[in-house]
Design a protein around this nucleic acid. Sequence first.
DNA 1: GTAAAAGTTAAACAAACGTTTGAATTGTAG
DNA 2: CTACAATTCAAACGTTTGTTTAACTTTTAC
Lengths: 200, 200
Amino acid sequence: MEKMAPKERVFRSAVYLFARHGFAGTGLRELAARAEVNLAMISYFYGSKKGLLKEILDGFFEQYIAIAEKELHGTDSLHTKLTRFISSAVRYFESDQDVLLVMITELPHDDPEIIEYKAKWAGKMAKIIGKEVCKPLAEETGRTIPASCMGPMLTSLMASRFLFSPLMKRVSGDIENSVNTESYIEIITTLFLQGLTAQE
Amino acid sequence: MEKMAPKERVFRSAVYLFARHGFAGTGLRELAARAEVNLAMISYFYGSKKGLLKEILDGFFEQYIAIAEKELHGTDSLHTKLTRFISSAVRYFESDQDVLLVMITELPHDDPEIIEYKAKWAGKMAKIIGKEVCKPLAEETGRTIPASCMGPMLTSLMASRFLFSPLMKRVSGDIENSVNTESYIEIITTLFLQGLTAQE
DNA sequence: GTAAAAGTTAAACAAACGTTTGAATTGTAG
DNA sequence: CTACAATTCAAACGTTTGTTTAACTTTTAC
């Protein structure tokens, strides 16, 4: 932490604290202390507390959508593409667990300054899912599931491990030891693929 | 709202506001105003702001676990029991969407006063899932998925619709019209059942 | 070397925070 | 009617909140 630039120290400390105390529950003085930075530097770097949150959310969605575009686009089979996407997305979630938690916990909140931001990204994601997943799926199996349903299902399922892990660590030892990331990816991949393509 | 008792007005207003602004983001004066109650009544009824949150979370977990115990227990097949559970749980989530959102958004936060509460309930739930879902599944298919992984997957999947709905409403019209609850239940039921019992 | 820019600081701002107090009001038994 | 308990109230408590100001230091550029 000492070798980082002050602006990045603030960013990382914010991610850490927002994930654990929530955005509104984190004070800027606590944040400044953890980042070892003067209080005024936060406003100097990010304009405001909400500006800092926006930058965190922007970073997450940018990467998440980049992964979706990269792994879901192309001429491969839906099965192959979804397998690739889930693997990449879960690995990214794991590498940035705190950012993921900030995104999820702030997802339903209706702050007018933040909500347009989230809606913009969600719309972008829905468009990709609709084109690359829902449409091919409908052609293959006849099942029409709208992107506004498919996207949340996929994201929630992939995030479930990390959303609950702070609690699960406390209830039954370290969760990391019970199911590693490889197994987790395999579980939800077969769950999703077999579940979607199954006819009843 | 006018015909309710003041204590319940406070409770419902708290659920409404916590779901939209977050727990830490909601001020007691704003809450008192919405509940049409004097500020001091909140402390009078619930002791403290955190006491109010505890009561909300308690109410959710109590009902959620009651549903799990009722629908998952018994001699029916795993398939039948899971179908029943998902149907009941999703319906409950829908009837109490705001409470569900409060629970999810407060899930990762590590307030020492609240965290034991959540861990207690999570442990109870994990025990039920382990006994009624994971064990039968292992006997049927040979797949061993620990409850600390299965529980979060199930809950997240069932909650996905409601976690994202505040955003999805804004991005593509009313989500309620695109996939109704019946279809949603059917989608995630077959997704989960076919996905779990599938051999690769 | 000097001037402009970028970075950093302590101090202060009004506003909002959760909580408490003690008096006033209302409801309930005896 | 009286007395006791439950409820409601306005007011104030001391903190903490996010943000801004103006002075100061360091870095950058010519």
